[in-house]
Design a protein around this nucleic acid. Structure first.
Lengths: 111, 111
DNA sequence: CCTTCATACATAGGTTGTCTACATATAGGG
DNA sequence: CCCTATATGTAGACAACCTATGTATGAAGG
């Protein structure tokens, strides 16, 4: 998966995996792998800064927890983030429609 | 349309509009607008450098023409570019499948 | 004539998100 | 003791897209 292709869609992915339940960064990376059938291997250097950014914007909130001697920062969707996720989904649909339409370009039979 | 979303898909768009016939930069911009129903307004500062990049890579070739006193640089797909377009299309399908799958995440009824 | 708009190309510099590489730390198995 | 899995994080590189600006021609209108 070309890294550049992810540009601008990372937020939607992160918000989406957090929709059902709060998760910590490492678990988010695993969730993305699983849900994508292994296609999405997002490095920590991408995920952690992105999560912080989303929290700063107000789409996520976080709190520390210690599980089995290891510290985790667990992120959860805020109301604002849940609303944003809706927006991301509709933006995604529009995006795929527009780009897909240009790429298909079946305009063979113009006349 | 969020600019970042286009990242990594610009090449596919450009190659795609050049599939049927050679076009010059200005006409390419107009073609993208038309084919996207006005959704895609790609600035010249994006298109011209991108076309040069694609030519440098070998996906496009260009030649100058003068039409009505105005100079045009007309780009056409090379064989390599045509092959690349196929690759871009299949990459696009894979991309939408993967991201779309994660975004949907209808995994409401587990178990 | 002169202004304005559409056509047509081009680049310098800024922005920003993703990646690579590295650093740190604990738990558990061999 | 070492290695792996778990877990978080940052610094700096990179690349693509955008903004802003510059040039030049032709046609239309006043």
């Amino acid at each position: 998966m070309n890294p550049d292709a992810l540009r601008g869609h990372m937020d939607a992915l992160l918000l989406s995996v957090l929709e059902r339940e709060p998760l910590h960064g490492y678990a988010i990376i695993e969730a993305l792998q699983e849900r994508s059938g292994g296609a999405l291997n997002v490095p920590t250097g991408t995920v952690y800064p992105a999560l912080r950014r989303l929290e700063r914007i107000g789409y996520l909130s976080s709190e520390w927890a210690t599980v089995g001697g290891r510290k985790r920062r667990t992120y959860r969707l805020t109301d604002s983030g849940r609303k944003q996720l809706e927006g991301e989904r509709s933006a995604w649909r529009q995006f795929t429609t527009v780009i897909g339409g240009v790429l298909r370009a079946d305009t063979t039979g113009t006349t």
